[in-house]
Nucleic acid binder design. Structure first.
Lengths: 223, 223
DNA sequence: AAATATTTTTAGATTAGTCTAAAAATACTT
DNA sequence: AAGTATTTTTAGACTAATCTAAAAATATTT
């Protein structure tokens, strides 16, 4: 049988996501943590995926996705992000609450379904979180993260990282609810003192000094 | 745990559907046939569902759904039919090809999702096959089948049965592609000879004699 | 009502995915 | 480089859902 179970799919996706940040092979323990399961279970599953040639694996050396494994995982990400877009744009869900439902929907197998959904949504390039949606061939625009001062006036972005990761700075951010994933819209830049007026999560206005802005990385959203 | 697995859900739905046509308790074998599995597996599952109080069961006496079992099955039917409607009305699937996909989608658990989908579709009362869609409380209009002459001019129906089931008649119907599930729209009735002009599947016009019409049962569609 | 046929249930095995506990391999520390 | 700590793998067991084959219960026929 050349079919993948829901569980196998979830493992593939977890590995895919762990690959995104590093080119190193992925450790058993890292997968166990991501999947909320034991290292022993992960080893079992890795062997199975390896036999199916979905991952490259040598004992004690971690795993990498094969090309088939990678394209399978990419198609899961495509489905996940298209369904999220559907939930937000058509069913009026807020973009914090869609993840869990999309985790389910992404396992619906029909290729025709997902391509029709893609068309129905107008072939969006990015999902409501600002993450790129792979097209039917698995290609997607990599959107590099930029620092907040590079974000144009009027543009929106998602907070995805910080330069300065010392406690005082992180505490400062927390005070203003500037947590990872927060949506930031640049309202205006003031040349006088280089400060920037933003709106946080479409709700609250806030002024940030240039020093703070330089330490924030965002991904732009263009829906 | 008060949660039902995908497999349990499929059994409940099968039992529900077998209940629809008869008030008798459902036989193990009937379920086995519907589920394409062995009678032994059915007995195992029945015991499990009985322990969960989703079915009433006595050995060798067949099963019935309990109230909870029934409302669970009803909510599956609701989901199935709403997703089918979505696929046909929004994603332009033809209504023969949606069943299989809806079999998957009906297991997505979120109540909020299905209610939003219902609203998005304009709270339809019937699915593309003409079957009634239960509302959020599990109530649905029972639509009795009528013979074709009872269907008003301009109205549409789905062919669901025949009175005369002799070979010559069935062959006659086949020649005109009047198979079960065919969509029939009444264009005009001619008093002169009691014949009826219909459109078959939105495609082909056809004239039927009264004798033929009297032998056809349809369910009306009101979308 | 006895014999036969059918249906349903039990018994015991199988597979996928998981677990814990112990063994083996690798990595770190001094 | 030797000893300790950590990570990974193996071994063996568990659960859900299934299977086949045999036993038990019910239904049908003569």
């Amino acid at each position: 049988m050349n079919t993948t179970s829901r569980t196998e799919e979830n493992y593939l996706k977890a590995i895919f996501q762990l690959c995104e940040r590093s080119d190193e092979p992925i450790a058993t323990n890292a997968i166990a943590q991501a999947m909320q399961t034991s290292a022993a279970s992960v080893t079992d599953m890795i062997k199975k995926l390896s036999k199916k040639e979905l991952v490259h694996y040598q004992k004690h050396k971690g795993v990498r996705l094969t090309d088939t494994g990678n394209s399978l995982a990419t198609s899961l990400v495509r489905k996940h992000r298209l369904w999220e877009t559907f939930l937000v744009k058509k069913l009026n869900f807020s973009w914090e609450e869609v993840h869990e439902i999309a985790e389910e929907l992404e396992h619906i197998p029909s290729k025709k379904l997902i391509n029709r959904l893609d068309d129905f949504l107008g072939n969006p390039k990015f999902d409501p979180h600002g993450d790129p949606i792979p097209d039917a061939d698995g290609n997607f625009t990599f959107r590099k993260q930029i620092s907040l001062p590079e974000l144009a006036e009027g543009a929106e972005g998602i907070l995805v990282g910080v330069q300065d990761d010392t406690m005082p700075f992180l505490q400062y951010l927390n005070k203003f609810n500037l947590t990872l994933g927060t949506k930031i819209k640049v309202i205006e830049r003031f040349a006088y003192d280089d400060s920037t007026k933003i709106i946080i999560n479409d709700e609250r206005e806030q002024i940030l000094t240039n020093k703070v802005c330089l330490n924030l990385f965002v991904k732009t959203i263009s829906i």
